[in-house]
């Protein structure tokens, strides 16, 4: 038996991020700290962002969860690091569209994140993939207010 349809979910690059998370840890004196969890399943993310002058200078995460949530967090930190706040938020919007299976703006290169496209076909797992992005949005929102 094969799990061919599952291969669209568990892409090699996702499993690589799960196994070797990028930007794992916490920024000592990060300007924003966000704790977010998915109460239905127990996934948890602790995200720190160093936002300076409208730029996300550094992003680190810690937490526990399934391969999709942790890989997504790793990819998210990689993607937003060095980006302007507006770009980071725009990326989040694009990612959300991608998860909903909508047409999405491809003018911004999302890099590894595109590997998560397959999650859209597994509705029960979309919340796993969006957790880190929601945390990032909340963090930037709190930083701006």
């Amino acid at each position: 038996m094969s799990f061919n349809n599952l291969d669209t979910l568990y892409r090699q690059v996702i499993m690589d991020h799960y196994k070797n998370p990028r930007n794992k840890g916490a920024i000592e004196d990060g300007s924003v700290t966000i704790e977010m969890n998915n109460p239905t399943c127990g996934d948890r993310i602790h995200l720190t962002l160093d936002v300076d002058n409208g730029i996300v200078k550094q992003a680190k995460f810690d937490g526990e969860g399934c391969s999709i949530s942790m890989a997504s967090a790793s990819m998210m930190t990689q993607a937003v690091k060095g980006q302007q706040v507006e770009t980071a938020l725009k990326m989040s919007g694009i990612f959300s569209d991608m998860m909903l299976g909508k047409e999405y703006d491809d003018s911004i290169d999302l890099g590894d994140i595109e590997a998560l496209q397959g999650v859209a076909k597994f509705p029960a797992r979309i919340k796993c993939a969006t957790l880190a992005w929601k945390a990032m949005e909340k963090g930037i929102d709190e930083n701006q207010s």
Binding site: F3, L6, C41, D43, G65, C66, S67, I68, A124
Partner: peptide
């Protein structure tokens, strides 16, 4: 294997289990 990943793979086989807390 995280329980969510486990449940997703089993679901692809038509097997419904619970994963979480």
């Amino acid at each position: 294997v995280h329980p969510h990943d486990l449940a997703t793979v089993l679901d692809a086989e038509g097997i419904a289990i619970r994963a979480g807390h």
